[in-house]
């Protein structure tokens, strides 16, 4: 793992991504101090272009776009990370059980996974949010629910491949229980792939969240980049700044996370490493 991090540090693109994400995190931490009045408060005249007082301008209701971008960063990271984390945990559990026990359980779980994969992800997420009524938690649940199948398939594949290896047999021969083999031997050996793919999930989760918020399916009480773009789209031709800055924020964040994910994948994936 340590050698993997060293390889990651040699990847310049991935480091640049990590730097951008660091800045985004810094922004979310300092947002309450930079914009103490919050993103929803009316700060000045509506639709003001970027100026010294409002560096990113104001929207149709006179809210500060910069404050919105700062608070939206928190929403995006919060939802992105927690949704990806829940998807990884659930997917790893399903894939792990299927890959270790095989047989009928495997068949059942994998058909269920395929069922989720065949439904268009965004439609399913929308449906779930509508059913659960829009809130922070329901958005996280919806995104996690459409993101876990990939992880489940990955973990199952790794478990099946590792299951035939002699060190797993040796452990079974020593009398190790199923959970012991799973948690002591199988999971640690596919952790690097899970980390790499899981980090990419964060990026897709952020995109899903902005998409939902754009359609008005986000938590209405929480500022989000998608919500900002949605609110600014009517005045796109007269006030370009309302949509553009949250859009740039989304672009930079998602791109950076993808770069980090690719970097991690390259650094930790033994199959790519040999090249």
């Amino acid at each position: 793992m340590r050698a993997g991090l060293r390889r990651f540090a040699r990847n310049r693109m991935a480091l640049a991504g990590a730097f951008v994400i660091f800045c985004v995190v810094l922004l979310t931490v300092t947002a309450p101090f930079l914009f103490p009045q919050g993103a929803f408060s009316l700060a000045g005249q509506p639709l003001q272009p970027p100026s010294l007082r409002f560096p990113l301008g104001t929207d149709a209701l006179g809210r500060d776009v910069a404050a919105g971008v700062a608070e939206g960063a928190r929403t995006s990271l919060l939802i992105g990370i927690s949704a990806a984390l829940s998807a990884v945990l659930f997917g790893a559990a399903v894939g792990g059980v299927a890959g270790y026990y095989r047989g009928p359980i495997d068949l059942l779980l994998m058909r269920m996974t395929e069922f989720f994969q065949t439904i268009p992800a965004f439609l399913l997420a929308m449906l779930l949010v509508v059913i659960l009524s829009p809130s922070l938690l329901s958005v996280i649940i919806a995104i996690a629910a459409v993101s876990w199948p990939g992880i489940a398939r990955l973990v199952r594949g790794e478990f099946v491949a590792l299951g035939g290896r002699e060190f797993i047999l040796a452990s079974a021969g020593l009398g190790a229980s199923g959970p012991r083999i799973i948690f002591r031997h199988l999971l640690p050996n596919c952790l690097s792939s899970i980390i790499a793919v899981g980090s990419l999930l964060v990026a897709t989760a952020i995109l899903l969240e902005t998409g939902l918020a754009f359609l008005g399916l986000g938590d209405p009480n929480i500022m989000s980049w998608g919500l900002q773009i949605s609110a600014g789209r009517v005045s796109l031709r007269s006030a370009w700044w309302v949509c553009t800055f949250p859009g740039i924020a989304i672009l930079l964040t998602v791109l950076s996370i993808n770069l980090i994910g690719d970097g991690l994948n390259e650094a930790l994936n033994p199959r790519l490493r040999e090249r």
């Binding site: 290896r165 060190f167 047999l169 452990s171 021969g173 020593l174 009398g175 002591r184 031997h185 640690p188």
Partner: peptide
Amino acid sequence: KAMRPYRRQVQMVFQDPYASLDPRQ
């Protein structure tokens, strides 16, 4: 589970020294 106490009486040495040890331990 019932097999566990008998496991310690019979042990195996494997063929491939590269595959038979957990690389993460």
